[in-house]
Write a protein that binds this DNA or RNA. Structure first.
Lengths: 246, 246
DNA sequence: CGGCACGTTGAAGTGACTCAATTCGCGTGG
DNA sequence: CCACGCGAATTGAGTCACTTCAACGTGCCG
């Protein structure tokens, strides 16, 4: 199992960063711990000081902020291959929480091991760093999404983003991928009410561009969906994967 | 002048990360290029592939997205000591632009020099990485700000954030700091109309919690402002500075 | 003096929100 | 077996906060 985990991580990092066999071996010296958690479980909470970082093997996680009043804002969605709280390696205190959106499988990497790794293997450090930079680019796009786009466009945009990322992660099945969010959660991600989400969704369905049901997202007409969202995937920096680093 | 620049950079990094004299010397081997640019100048544009990263010495910069329709969304503000496009070191293509909000002084660091530096000096790499992670935390808070908070609260929140950061950067004068944004720009930062900004500002002024005029922000009653914004500075990760890294 | 950028204020319009009722599917338990 | 409760989604109706539109004031600069 640990070998499997390391192989997945290596695969992910190699999509954008070139790593030598020396660095592969260094990765293989890590000792991840495997775990499964159920839908709705908080993996880390705002205010925690984790001593591990999570590598998501299967399922979907979300980061979120909670205000004192209890309102929730989802910040990002994470799929297999992501490292959703890698930043906790260098930022002691969690400024947000991490929750499982369905049944997930994860691996824990000890911070002290990661720290040693990045100190000894600069190329690995650069690969992990790059990963967090892509996360940041996605955060930026989220600001624009809630700030500038209208409800239907906004919904279409996240759906585009998720599908594009799922495809890059090779976890699509044909034209569909897992998407376990309820409309309430979607509302808290997109800063719109449940009712608006429902109507926007109906609109996209009626246009026959996309369908979301039973926890799956199915793209009916990618061109149409992309046009509706004005989705430009460059911020996902997937081209790095093709180019294999700089 | 270059020495001055390196000293500033070192100072900033040392606020959250411990660096030895060896690493100091490595930093000193960099050859920054100095430049001044006027208000409104774009330093980098969406789509560019910069081969330098910017260190902001004086003044204020902003990152922004532009949609095809031309609408603009400001993503982040940057003050002296920030490295507003450090991510371009590892993400080839810029997914956003960078503009000067007033007359600014900057230093350019060549990517190839930075690359060599982070490859040879892991502690420096970690310090720079941490810097980008703090930026990401600020992006996350921006999502919540536009997504969840009401206009007055939202405005109060950015003002709190900017003042707190200015104070940490030691560029306050008493209870005031530079804040050169027009209300139109504030609107594009906060995803609200110019009119709403004006009214929200009037409200805060009337409450005697803060005043913004002539490009300066003056805090009249920090407690009141902070309460209004429900501002919790932990996401700025300033405590790292006190603790000097992990 | 005129033009322009910026900010303020009033008034009108509207899009998204809240509230509410209904349906559907699912699991539990009488 | 069916009744019931619950979570989720849909749909209609009314309200309201923020937007847009517009007029005006102010300060600055050519």
């Amino acid at each position: 199992m640990p070998d499997q985990i390391i192989a997945s991580l290596l695969h992910r990092l190699c999509q954008h960063s070139a790593l030598s066999s020396r660095e592969e071996r260094a990765l293989a010296r890590l000792h991840p711990r495997f775990a499964e958690v159920t839908r709705g479980t908080d993996l880390v909470r705002q205010g925690d000081r984790p001593d591990v970082s999570i590598f998501l093997l299967r399922g979907m996680l979300a980061r979120y902020h909670t205000l004192v009043e209890g309102d929730r804002q989802y910040l990002a969605l994470h799929i297999a291959g992501d490292l959703p709280d890698l930043q906790s390696l260098f930022l002691g205190v969690m400024d947000h929480s991490l929750v499982a959106l369905d049944a997930v499988q994860i691996a824990y990497f000890q911070h002290d091991q990661l720290c040693r790794l990045v100190e000894e293997e600069p190329r690995v450090a650069m690969a992990l760093w790059r990963q967090t930079l892509i996360d940041a680019a996605i955060f930026r796009e989220a600001i624009t999404n809630v700030g500038l786009r209208k409800p239907v466009e906004r919904l279409a945009h996240v759906l585009c983003e998720q599908f594009a990322r799922a495809r890059a992660a090779k976890i699509c099945e044909g034209e569909s991928c897992s998407f376990p969010l309820t409309q309430t959660q979607l509302g808290q991600l997109l800063a719109m009410s449940l009712v608006s989400v429902s109507r926007a969704m109906a609109r996209l369905r009626r246009d026959r561009s996309v369908d979301v049901r039973d926890g799956r997202l199915t793209v009916l007409d990618w061109k149409k969906l992309q046009a509706r969202a004005r989705f430009d995937p460059s911020y996902l920096h997937l081209e790095l994967r093709a180019a294999r680093g700089r």
